[in-house]
Simulated scan of single mutants.
Amino acid sequence: MADNKDAPQEVAAKFLAKLAESPFIMIGLTDGEHSEPMNVKLDEDQPNALFIFSGHDNRIATGGDAMAQFVGKGHDFFACLAGEVSQETNQATFDKLWDNRVEAWFPNGKADARLNRFDISSAELWETDVSIAGRLKMLFGGTIKPSESSSHAVVDSVA
Rank of each mutant, 00 (worst) to 15 (best):
F106Q: 07
N90T: 14
V85R: 01
M67P: 02
A82R: 05
A79I: 09
F77R: 09
D95L: 11
D76N: 13
G72W: 10
V102E: 07
A68N: 03
E88D: 07
Q87T: 14
V102A: 04
D76E: 11
F78L: 10
F106A: 07
T89C: 04
S86P: 12
A66H: 01
G72R: 10
F70K: 09
V102H: 07
H75F: 10
K73F: 12
Q69E: 12
L81K: 05
D99H: 05
V71I: 14
A92V: 03
G72K: 04
F94H: 05
E84M: 12
D76P: 10
A68H: 05
A104K: 06
L81W: 07
F70E: 01
T89S: 11
A82D: 13
G74A: 14
H75Q: 13
Q91H: 10
A68L: 04
W98R: 09
S86T: 15
F106L: 04
F106T: 12
A104P: 02
T89K: 11
F70M: 09
Q87W: 03
F94P: 01
M67S: 11
G83Y: 10
Q91E: 12
L97S: 00
G83Q: 03
K73Q: 15
N90L: 04
F70N: 01
H75W: 07
F78G: 00
T93V: 15
G83C: 04
F94C: 15
T93L: 05
V71R: 14
N90A: 06
F94N: 10
D99M: 02
E88G: 01
T93W: 06
R101V: 06
K73G: 13
N100L: 06
E88I: 00
L81M: 13
A104D: 07
A92M: 13
Q69T: 15
N100V: 11
W98D: 01
L81E: 06
F70P: 00
A68Q: 04
V102R: 02
K73W: 09
F77W: 10
R101D: 10
N90Y: 06
F77S: 08
V85Q: 01
S86I: 07
M67I: 13
A82N: 14
A68V: 08
N100R: 06
L97G: 00
K96W: 04
E84S: 12
N100I: 02
G83T: 11
F77K: 05
Q87R: 13
G74E: 12
A82L: 14
V85S: 06
Q91V: 05
Q69C: 06
F106S: 06
F106I: 03
V102N: 02
M67F: 05
E88P: 00
H75C: 07
V85K: 02
C80G: 05
